[in-house]
Write a protein that binds this DNA or RNA. Structure first.
Lengths: 219, 219
DNA sequence: ATATTGCCGTTGTTTTTCCAACTTATTCAG
DNA sequence: CTGAATAAGTTGGAAAAACAACGGCAATAT
């Protein structure tokens, strides 16, 4: 694990933890290193998962398979990123996805039970860690909620309007740069690219927006 | 506040906090009570919000307005429930919604900064509270992620298949009771009710599923 | 300068979904 | 039991979105 310590320290999970506190904290969190061969499963849907997985080498795939066997890659977790935090914080709830090594991979398992359900004092380092975790989950929550609002809009136009509205709100002005190309934006809003292009054109013609390439403004 | 103490204690935020620890914890969290008249705004999109709001009387609406002024009620928070937790855990990120009193309302503001960014020890009560918060956010996260998967499916049939798959997985068997009526299920999956009925029929005819009323089974 | 490539807009066609209206089934009250 | 009310299934036409194919444009390579 020692050769990966700098990567661990750089993870947002451990942000703000004093250098000297990191190793004791890792012990406290019962951190264990695991090595996996490409294609090996880290856990399956239905397993109780009580740790956060942090990828140190390689990458893993989060996978879901439906009742009829259709398999779906939900996300790829690269080196430096983590997964399973929602399951780890809900020990009574089993995993709802499979996780498989997309390449030979090294991860650490971070057991959070101690800092969550202890009923005892938390050291400053533990408090910092839980605070970090809370912030990360809050941020994920915010992103999910926002995206959900786009997806539940009934028409493509409404999805676009809400999305552009929020971009303008975030930037604080009605003119801004789109952070996606068209294909990425279409994927994000879960619509067809050409349909997106067409709808943007219509909205321009209708006087709702103006744009040129990735320069947008709301009217 | 005293007359509402039993409601506060019953909130999942304070689950597991020893009775004697509640009042000191509330002080610690700088809890303040506020009264609002119907229609009054608790905060606006763009405001920095550093507290969790817990509704003690009445109810509040979470509202979003887009750039062109279209207003949208995202959710209603009734007595006993809370809101704003994601903003409170991300002090640098301003609110992205408005909150307005749907009726005359009483709420308390729970300031979490102390237990999040202190860099100091946490008492058992504080630790319990942050643990609760983490669990609640994890659960919300899980639900959002799962729903998102349904919504990003391209066809109605795929939405249904994934949703039913997950129900069967949760129950542990291929036969189960649907927790929604058709209209609710359609709303949840963001599709038209009659289209949902029609697609269910087709799926039955195609031998994928069988059902009668809310009794479903996967084949 | 020319070819290649990737991104974006446009258009016509096909497919899917929505929508409205109606039928059938079920529940519940009197 | 009867009738009203609610929920679910069915159908046909309208609207929207997806899909496929193509052309323009700009950046980059040859």
């Amino acid at each position: 694990m020692e050769q990966h310590l700098s990567l661990i320290e750089k993870s947002p999970l451990f942000r703000g933890v004093a250098k000297d506190d990191v190793l004791p904290l890792l012990q406290d969190l019962k951190v264990r290193q695991k090595n996996y061969k490409k294609g090996e499963f880290l856990f399956y849907s239905g397993d109780p998962v009580t740790y956060i997985g942090l990828v140190l080498e390689g990458s893993v795939h989060i996978i879901q398979e439906d009742y009829w066997g259709n398999r779906n890659i939900l996300s790829q977790i690269p080196k430096g990123f983590f997964f399973g935090e929602a399951f780890a914080c809900l020990p009574e709830a089993p995993a709802t996805v499979d996780v498989v090594a997309a390449s030979d991979a090294v991860i650490i398992q971070i057991y959070v039970a101690n800092v969550l359900h202890g009923g005892h004092l938390l050291t400053p380092a533990e408090a910092q860690f839980t605070g970090n975790l809370l912030g990360l989950m809050a941020e994920k929550n915010r992103l999910l909620t926002e995206k959900m609002r786009y997806l539940t809009q009934r028409s493509t136009r409404q999805k676009i309007m809400l999305y552009l509205s929020n971009l303008a709100r975030d930037k604080g002005k009605s003119a801004f740069v789109l952070p996606f190309n068209r294909q990425q934006m279409a994927d994000f809003l879960s619509v067809d690219r050409s349909a997106l292009s067409a709808e943007l054109s219509k909205m321009k013609k209708d006087g709702l927006i103006d744009y040129h390439k990735d320069q947008f403004s709301l009217l």
